[in-house]
């Protein structure tokens, strides 16, 4: 098990280097630093010297891979690839193109994201599993059929509609909670509740349908027939036998996204004005601040990979058949 986890961790290194190379290629080879500078400064009619200044200021005034102005090891290290891309491995995210300290921003903005993401995940999970169990219990009846149709309708509506109409009716017409904004501490509640409700409702369609499929798949298996042959009541078959087996794909599916919760939801946070990492990223994208986008891509990858390893560990806990080798 330990050996397995170490091997998985080691496998992370080439993956992260791959991601690093990919983003480096996207930002520095498709577009030259000069293009980035011009985009930041706004337009192509900027004087060359202004561009040069900006590049100097942000450390873009280096060659890509080999610096022939330097000697020795510095020829390889004093390059854009090392200073802008590889340096992410030390979790030194540097300074954003607009001059902010990214690491500091990340540590500040992580928490509001968590405030939204965790309640949405937990409540959503409970709601979806309950609905899915209900549909599975009434399988192949009109309850199930109309439930599935309802799920398909729910998931055919763009998430943006849920947000906009939620804000409009609950926030603007009924004025129950503020439309957007955020405060720390206990007063966070009134800002968090609307995004969480909207997030849960938006996820019901796809979630319920997915869990229903898992339940029905388990219910078609032979051991369920054995359980029924024992004379067990249907509810007991469902709760003891089906749920316990269905938890394997459900738990492992959830564990993989837990680390990524820190990144928050781009759309939610931006609509509801939550100062989390999601809105941080979206602002960076809109302002074309590459330093931040690069840092977030790297961070997101690491969190996802941690999620994958946690999934493996979760498997050994929930499934007695799995032993990692």
């Amino acid at each position: 098990m330990i050996a397995y986890l170490i091997r998985r961790l080691l496998y992370l290194i080439p993956v992260l280097i791959g991601v690093n190379l990919l983003t480096f290629a996207l930002y520095f080879i498709v577009n030259s630093p000069e293009d980035i500078a011009r985009a930041q400064l706004g337009g192509k009619h900027i004087d060359q010297s202004v561009v040069q200044d900006w590049e100097d200021q942000h450390g873009y005034n280096k060659p890509l891979f080999y610096n022939n102005k330097e000697t020795g090891i510095a020829a390889l290290t004093d390059t854009l690839f090392v200073k802008k891309s590889l340096i992410l491995f030390t979790f030194n995210f540097g300074v954003s193109d607009s001059g902010r300290n990214i690491s500091h921003d990340v540590s500040q903005r992580m928490w509001p994201s968590i405030y939204i993401a965790i309640p949405t995940l937990i409540i959503g999970l409970l709601v979806n599993i309950t609905f899915a169990m209900l549909l599975a219990f009434f399988r192949q009846t009109y309850v199930d059929l109309s439930g599935v149709l309802f799920c398909i309708i729910m998931m055919s509506i763009s998430g943006l509609f849920y947000i906009i109409s939620g804000q409009y009716f609950i926030g603007k017409v009924l004025q129950l909670v503020p439309i957007s904004g955020f405060e720390g501490g206990f007063s966070a509640f009134k800002f968090v509740i609307l995004p969480v409700v909207v997030g849960v409702i938006g996820g019901i369609g796809a979630g319920t349908r997915w869990y229903r499929t898992i339940f029905l798949e388990e219910m078609g298996k032979d051991y369920i027939r054995t359980a029924r042959a024992k004379g067990l009541a249907e509810s007991r078959v469902l709760f003891k036998h089906v749920l316990k087996n269905a938890m394997i794909p459900i738990v492992t599916g959830v564990v993989v996204i837990i680390p990524s919760l820190f990144l928050g939801s781009l759309i939610m946070e931006s609509f509801f004005g939550i100062p989390g990492l999601g809105s941080y990223t979206i602002d960076a994208i809109r302002q074309q601040d590459f330093a931040i986008v690069r840092a977030m891509v790297f961070l997101g990858t690491i969190l996802y990979c941690i999620g994958l390893i946690m999934t493996d560990i979760a498997y050994t806990i929930v499934d007695p058949r799995v032993r990692l080798q």
């Binding site: 791959g18 991601v19 985009a39 074309q288 891509v297």
Partner: peptide
């Protein structure tokens, strides 16, 4: 390896990163 790498970047971020890069390319 290739698809693990591509897959491990969160979807929206990868798309955003790529689109941004191309956007600048198109506008320049």
């Amino acid at each position: 390896y290739v698809y693990t790498t591509v897959n491990s970047i969160p979807d929206v971020l990868l798309i955003a990163a790529a689109v941004l890069a191309l956007q600048i390319f198109i506008s320049n």
